[in-house]
Simulated scan of single mutants.
Amino acid sequence: MSLLPTNATAAERALEEAMLAKIDLSKVGRSWDPATCPAQDLPFLAWGLAISHWDTTWTEAEKRAAVAGAIPFHQIKGTRAAVEQVLARFHPLLSIVEWWETSPAREPHTFEVRANSLEIPVDFLTPETADAIIRDVAAAKPLRAHFDFVQSLEAQAKIYMAAGGMAGSLHRADYHAEHDTSRDWSLVLQTEDGEPILTEDGADYLETA
C-alpha cells in the first residue's frame, strides 16, 4: 500500500516502488559518471547525454571518453569550433572553408569541408568514412549553415628563369579538380529545430520516401 498522496508525481511513485523492492539506489549516482558507469550501461548514458554519434566498435576507453566529452561538446555545438573538433576526430588535415574565405565569396552561411587528395591518402576516404563525416558535421554545424563535402586535387607549379643575374619571368599554374559526392540533404527528415533525424539504429539519417 502506497503512503504517497494522490497528487504524487510519477518520479516519486517510481522512487517508492524502488525502495519497496529494496533496490540499492546508492549506485544510481555512479551510473551517471562516465568513469564509474558499468560498461554495459554506457550506451544508455550516451543516449541520456544526447551524443550525436556512437560507434559500437569503440573500445571501452573510447566510449567513456566520448561520454565524458558530451557536455563540453554541447556547449560549443553549432559553432565552427564544434565542426573542427568533429573533423579532427576523423583526420587532422580535413579543413573548413567558409563562404567569406573564398574568392569570389559564396552564398552567406555556407561552407565547404575539404579533403585534399594530395595530403590525405585515397584509401582513407572510403564512401563509408565520407558518409560518417557528413553525418557528424551535419549534427555539429550551425542550424542555418549549409555545406558541401569536397574531395579536391590541387597542384601548384612555379618556373623561374633568369639570365645575367637579372630576374627573367615567373609562371605559376594552378590546377584544381573537385569530385562532389555530397549527400542530397533536402531528402533528410529534420526536427522542428532543424536537426537531422537518425534512424532507429543511429547509423544513418531518415529520408523522405
Rank of each mutant, 00 (worst) to 15 (best):
His109Val: 01
Val122Phe: 07
Glu119Val: 00
Ile120Met: 07
Ala66Gly: 07
Ala209Gln: 14
Asp131Pro: 00
Trp47Lys: 11
Ile134Ala: 12
Gln75Ile: 07
Pro127Gly: 10
Arg64Trp: 00
Tyr160Ile: 04
Ser169Gly: 07
Ala177Ile: 10
Glu200Ser: 15
Glu192Arg: 15
Gln75Gly: 08
Gly48Ala: 11
Val83Gln: 02
Met19Gly: 04
Glu101His: 07
Trp47Glu: 08
Ile133Cys: 05
Glu178Ser: 09
Asn7Ser: 14
Asp184Phe: 00
Ala139Val: 00
Thr59Leu: 10
His53Val: 05
Ser95Pro: 02
Glu128Val: 10
Thr181Ser: 12
Pro92Lys: 02
His176Met: 11
Thr208Cys: 08
Arg89Asn: 14
Thr79Lys: 08
Gly78Tyr: 12
Arg106Ile: 01
Leu153Tyr: 05
Glu119Ala: 04
Tyr205Asn: 09
Trp47Phe: 01
Gln40Leu: 02
Pro127Asp: 06
Thr36Lys: 15
Glu16Lys: 02
Thr208Glu: 08
Leu187Val: 08
Val188Gln: 04
Gln190Ser: 06
Ala21Tyr: 03
Tyr175Ala: 10
Glu128Gln: 11
Met161Asn: 10
Asp204Thr: 05
Gln85Glu: 05
Thr199Phe: 08
Ala140Cys: 06
Ile76Pro: 07
Thr56Ser: 13
Gly78Lys: 13
Glu107Ala: 11
Glu12Val: 00
Ala140Glu: 06
Val83Ser: 03
Gly164Phe: 01
Pro43Leu: 01
Pro38Trp: 04
Leu25Gln: 12
Ala21Trp: 08
Lys77Met: 09
Ala115Gly: 13
Asp131Thr: 06
Leu45Trp: 06
Asp193Asn: 13
Glu119Trp: 01
Glu62Leu: 11
Leu4Gly: 09
Pro104Thr: 03
Ile76Cys: 12
Gly69Ser: 14
Glu107Pro: 08
Ala21Leu: 13
His109Lys: 09
Arg13Ile: 11
Asp184Val: 01
Ala11Ser: 14
Thr59Gly: 15
Ala88His: 07
Asp193Phe: 05
Val150Trp: 01
Pro196Tyr: 04
Ser186Met: 06
Ala14Cys: 10
Ser26Trp: 03
Leu94Thr: 01
Gly164Ile: 04
Ser152Ile: 06
Ile23Leu: 15
Thr59Trp: 14
Leu187Trp: 03
Thr79Asp: 06
Ala139Asp: 08
Leu3His: 15
Phe90Trp: 12
Ala35Phe: 13
Arg172Ile: 12
Leu15Ile: 12
Pro38Asp: 06
Ser182Gly: 13
Leu189Lys: 15
Pro5Thr: 09
Ala61Asp: 15
Asp136Thr: 09
Arg135Trp: 01
Ala8Ser: 15
Asp148Pro: 00
His146Tyr: 06
Pro34Phe: 12
Val150Gln: 08
Ala70Leu: 10
Thr191Val: 03
Ser169Pro: 03
Gly29Pro: 06
